Amino acid sequence: MFNTRLTQALGIDIPVVQAPMGWIARSQLASAVSNAGGLGVIETSSGELDIIKGEIGKMRELTDKPFAVNIAQAFVRDPDVVPFIIDQGVKFVTTSAGSPERFTDQLKTAGLTVYHVVPSLSAALKAVECGVDGLVVEGAEGGGFKNPKDVASLVLLPLIRAHLDVPIIAAGGFHDGATLAAAIALGADGIQLGTRMVASKESPVHDNWKQAIVNAKETDTVFLSRFAPPALRALRTERTTRLEKDPAQSGMADFGDPKALYFGGDMEAAIPLTGQVCGRITAVESVADILAKVKAEYELALNRVSTASKA
């Protein structure tokens, strides 16, 4: 059904990549995404490299489908992480939170495919100049770490496509088959899902966070630390509302205890990184059901476009 440069390069059935969210993007969730036809990704942004190495090993037990690893450079200071990933036979890596100059040559020399996460046209041009194979183009709608000079996906994606012809994974604001169709129409080869995967049954986070996403409106996220980067998009809570009112305050300096939030369910213990698509998520569903719906909704979206073009 799908035939994009992303599905061709990675051997996946559906051009959907799961976001590499710290403490969340581990084998339980990533294997479910890969087994359902998308691309599961193991995170490194938690910095717990000993645990992450075990999670990569678990992926071999839980799936025989392709999967990837993200190297979040600002949080990974162990240079041995790259040789370890190479030795594990991982074929696809995304790099983020740092310069594409750092690891691209080393990874590509070992035969890996490398995509770099970019929030702007200038960053995209630099990444391609450094030799990456593709880009994750991240609009400001998405949850997590953001460019303080925020640009929405609807502007950023076609802008970068107009200047570059490398494969693109569109991130930020994508949620379903209709937004996948929109991304492809704007020049992407696939999409990345983060918040939708946080609120999946296989997500390891506490049900309190999942239900907070289900109950959220489209206006229930905040953009933090615009003047004290890194900027963050997160779910509105008492903690994040306080930080929102002081744009010079660093969200990272007042991030809190992530494990108490992620696994203990205390929504005020830390900053719940969440994208604007929380306003469109109405239920906690299995990864298999989420991706099956993406396929069905994609077909419906194409039919709507086809019907409109004939009118």
Rank of each mutant, 00 (worst) to 15 (best):
Ser225Gln: 03
Phe227Met: 06
Glu244Ser: 08
Asn208Asp: 14
Val128Met: 05
Ser250Met: 01
Asp133Met: 05
Ser153Leu: 05
Gly190Lys: 01
Phe174Cys: 04
Glu141Ile: 08
Ala170Ile: 01
Val166Glu: 02
Asn215Gln: 11
Gly134Ile: 09
Phe227His: 14
Phe227Gly: 01
Thr195Gly: 08
Met197Pro: 00
Ala123Ser: 13
Ala212Leu: 07
Val222Asp: 01
Ala170Cys: 05
Ala182Cys: 11
Val205Gly: 00
Gly172Met: 11
Arg242Ala: 15
Gly194Asp: 07
Leu243Lys: 02
Arg239Asn: 08
Ala178Pro: 00
Arg226Ala: 13
Thr221Glu: 10
Leu159Gln: 15
Leu164Ser: 04
Ala199Thr: 03
Arg161Ile: 05
Ala171Leu: 02
Lys126Thr: 06
Ile213Lys: 13
Glu129Cys: 09
Ala185Glu: 15
Pro204Met: 13
Ser153Thr: 14
Ser203Gly: 03
Pro148Lys: 10
Glu244Ile: 01
Pro148Met: 08
Gly251Met: 10
Leu235Glu: 03
Gln211Trp: 11
Ala185Met: 15
Ile168Met: 03
Ile169Pro: 00
Glu202Trp: 02
Thr179Gln: 07
Leu232Lys: 04
Ser122Arg: 15
Ala188Glu: 09
Leu125Phe: 08
His163Met: 11
Ser203Asn: 02
Ala124Pro: 07
Glu138Asn: 10
Lys245Gly: 09
Pro229Ser: 13
His163Gly: 02
Ala185Leu: 09
Thr195Asp: 04
Leu180Tyr: 01
Asp246Arg: 12
Ala152Val: 12
Ala248Glu: 15
Met197Gly: 01
Ala234Glu: 05
Arg233Gln: 13
Leu235Ser: 03
Ala140Val: 14
Val222Glu: 03
Leu186Val: 07
Ile191Arg: 02
Val155Thr: 14
Asn215Asp: 15
Thr241Glu: 15
Pro247Ala: 05
Asp133Val: 01
Glu129Met: 06
Asp207Lys: 14
Pro229Ala: 05
Ser120Cys: 11
Ala188His: 09
Thr219Cys: 06
Gly173His: 06
Ser122Met: 10
Gly187Trp: 05
Asp246Phe: 09
Arg196Ile: 07
Lys146Gly: 08
Asp150Val: 02
Leu121Gly: 13
Leu232Thr: 00
Lys210Val: 02
Pro247Thr: 10
Asp165Phe: 01
Leu157Asp: 12
Glu138Phe: 14
Pro158Lys: 12
Cys130Lys: 12
His175Cys: 13
Lys201Cys: 04
Asn147Lys: 10
Val166Asn: 06
Leu186Ser: 00
Leu156Cys: 15
